[in-house]
Amino acid sequence: MSTYSIKDLEQLSGIKAHTLRIWEQRYNLLNPKRTETNIRYYDDEDLKLILNVAFLNENGYKISRIVAMPRREIKAEVLRMTEESLAQDDQLHALTFCIIDMDEEGFERVFNACIVKLGFEQTMLDVIYPFMSKIGVLWQTGSITPAQEHFISNLVRQKLIVAIDALNQLNTGKKFLLFLPEGELHEISLLFSCFLIKASGHRVVYLGQSTPQEDLRMVYRVHQPDYMLTVLTSALSSETTQEYVSSLSAQFPDTQLLVSGYQVIAKDLVFPSNVRLMRHFADFKEILGEISSVAQEK
């Protein structure tokens, strides 16, 4: 069982620690445990309760009404509302429960319900990516464990692979070479890019995680892609990111390079003429639209 500080509860629920303490004192909402050194902490059941209370409170329930409800009634009402809702925050709430419990069945239920309502692409854009951003922050602050982050990431990765395999049409558009630099293992954005490219009728050569530059050059010579796409999330240092981008530009001067990821979005870099920055997936969809428009004109 995991343990949480009150700051962790604040991060996960969105309720300020000061407010949580008031609710604890006024309504006896929580009963924190104490370590041998008298440090207060909370367990999984406390976190689930606070998440449910926060959800109902955000949806118009007064705290005085919530605390008067039996725990099972609180849970049942939250489940009912999340199953009926299309609101992004409600789906993020449901997915947060899945990561706490490492609940694969719950994830499947939420994910499939979103696909029915929104379709695969919008589920990724409107629900999964905001959720992945949220858990990235929670992982960095220690509010969730690496195991919990890996659990959800691998479930999303599996969904993307299945969706890509389902795009079995014969594509005849432009050719894209997709890769991550050596040491880079965060593959979800690259996989979703692959899905968008194939769904737009273009071809993909997918190299995936941690691609050595020598292998990249060899594949480039064989396939001569029209575009190369990479996502720089964490493998490179701030000092080497500019060097890596400039090196790619120099090695592949005849190809349009598309780059994205935290290491390039959050940094003040100089991009050569054949390198294009994508800050959001909306930017990439715009690029795919431009390519399709040019193809139609020809």
Rank of each mutant, 00 (worst) to 15 (best):
A87P: 08
S273T: 15
L79H: 02
A147Y: 12
R65G: 06
H93T: 12
P70Y: 00
Q251H: 02
F131D: 14
R276T: 12
V78F: 11
A54G: 04
E184N: 03
D89N: 02
L236Y: 10
F252G: 04
A17E: 13
T233N: 06
Q158F: 15
Y220P: 00
P212Y: 09
K175E: 09
L232D: 00
V205L: 01
L269C: 09
L196M: 03
L12N: 02
L269W: 12
F176I: 06
V259K: 01
A87G: 00
M132V: 07
E24G: 08
F107V: 12
V275R: 12
A94F: 09
N168R: 08
Y42P: 15
N112W: 11
I152G: 07
I128R: 01
T3P: 07
A163N: 07
F120R: 06
N28C: 07
F55E: 12
I50Y: 11
E286C: 03
S210L: 05
P32W: 06
A199K: 07
T240V: 03
D43Y: 12
P130D: 03
S238R: 04
N52F: 10
G261K: 15
H280S: 08
Y4Q: 15
S238G: 07
F195N: 13
D268N: 01
E214M: 05
C194W: 14
I115T: 15
S2C: 01
T145E: 02
A250K: 12
I144S: 14
N154A: 01
L9K: 01
K267S: 06
P225Q: 00
V205C: 04
V110Q: 05
Q91R: 15
F252D: 00
I15D: 08
R65Q: 03
S200K: 04
E73K: 13
T145I: 13
E290C: 00
F284C: 06
L180H: 10
V156A: 10
R276P: 08
E121F: 03
H150N: 04
D43R: 12
V156M: 03
F281T: 14
F271M: 09
H93C: 09
E58M: 05
V245F: 00
I128K: 00
R40I: 07
Y4W: 14
F151Q: 06
R217K: 05
S189P: 13
P70N: 02
F120Q: 01
D126G: 00
R217W: 05
Y41A: 14
R72V: 08
E24F: 09
L138N: 08
Q296E: 10
L229N: 15
L49G: 13
I100K: 06
V222M: 08
N57T: 14
T145V: 02
N38R: 04
D8W: 03
D89R: 04
K134C: 13
P32Q: 02
M124E: 04
G136I: 09
L20K: 05
